[in-house]
């Protein structure tokens, strides 16, 4: 074995990557080689230096921020997927790649025509009022199309021709009963996709302030509320979603969402609200299964909030005594 190989072994030894046998070979060599002993000393010094001076721990705060931002990104991803991609996935088995290409072409053409109509219509000719057929409420009013984010694709116009992209947004006014499924669906979409937390909060409370307690909500609306409860970036929206969901029948989906929040929600006030929401159905026996009891036991043993541990213990002990 040559000297270079011993030097490599020294590095591996410092990194605790040598087997017992190799370690013994190296130890024998070190006894006889002054240069390698010095090299080992240097390597240990180097290793200590880079560990002490170059290392840092990831803080809980950073992790919380990263999780929060990921939730928002996943929500956006999901809403994107729920549109066109899911449509394609559903019908994937029906269409061959050729047909898909053709459909794609037609869709592009249609999009082009639509954008052309929206973008090229002179402002005064944009219809001020119109009924949106997709909405069955008694009146839907459309405002002017706003063009924004114009981006030039060819910065230097050639022969007077320009090429650019833009976004066209058309505000739509809608009026209808809150229990109208069309209204509810729009609000649910707003709850899932709107960037403004104030709007999302308003959407949740509107969905919750009307309708009787026993009504069975549309699945899409319930999903939107559950989604908001579990992952909305704004605690106010999550709290409101919890309040509204409590008005609905306590089925498996709602129960799972409550347990999810109890286990993973970072805001202690939310966890307390969930324990309060669970208390009555648990004590009544309406909701008393292993999952619920385990979640309560988990909280009473390991939650970092004293009050939550106490509340969870009270409910848990009361159930045990029954």
């Amino acid at each position: 074995m040559n000297h270079t190989q011993y030097k490599e072994m020294l590095q591996l030894s410092v990194l605790r990557e040598l087997g017992d046998e190799e370690q013994q070979v190296l130890a024998r060599h070190l006894q006889a080689c002054e240069a390698c002993r010095k090299e080992l000393e240097e390597l240990v010094k180097f290793s200590t230096l880079v560990h002490q001076r170059g290392s840092f721990e990831t803080s809980d705060e950073l992790l919380r921020e990263a999780r929060q931002e990921l939730r928002v990104a996943i929500r956006l991803e999901r809403s994107r997927r729920s549109g066109w991609e899911e449509f394609l996935e559903k019908f994937e088995f029906l269409v061959s790649p050729r047909v898909r290409m053709a459909v794609g072409g037609v869709a592009m053409l249609a999009a082009g025509v639509l954008v052309g109509r929206l973008g090229m219509t002179p402002a005064e000719e944009v219809p001020g009022i119109g009924v949106t057929p997709a909405m069955s409420s008694d009146a839907s009013l459309r405002g002017e199309t706003r063009i924004s984010n114009v981006r030039f694709l060819n910065p230097e116009p050639v022969n007077g021709e320009v090429e650019f992209t833009f976004e066209a947004v058309t505000p739509i006014r809608m009026r209808g009963q809150v229990n109208d499924p069309a209204v509810q669906k729009v609000l649910a979409q707003g709850l899932m996709n709107d960037q403004n937390p104030g709007t999302r909060l308003k959407a949740v409370s509107t969905l919750g302030n009307f309708g009787d307690q026993s009504m069975v909500p549309d699945h899409e609306i319930k999903s939107a509320l559950i989604q908001a409860l579990k992952s909305d970036a704004n605690v106010g929206v999550r709290k409101e979603a919890l309040r509204v969901l409590q008005r609905f029948p306590l089925d498996k989906e709602v129960r799972d969402a409550l347990l999810y929040v109890l286990r993973l929600e970072e805001n202690p006030a939310m966890r307390i609200d969930v324990i309060n929401a669970l208390e009555k159905p648990v004590l009544d026996g309406q909701l008393r299964d292993d999952d619920v009891l385990n979640a309560l036991r988990e909280k009473m043993q390991s939650d970092d909030n004293n009050y939550i541990r106490l509340r969870a213990r009270n409910v848990y002990e009361e159930v045990r005594q029954q």
Partner: peptide, 22 residues
């Protein structure tokens, strides 16, 4: 199941963030 996905993320995300940060 979004909850399951989130739990899956939480099992490993500290390590992912740590590798990335360092």
């Amino acid at each position: 199941d979004a909850m399951a996905f989130e739990q899956l993320v939480y099992r490993y995300d500290r390590q992912v963030l740590s590798i990335a940060a360092r």
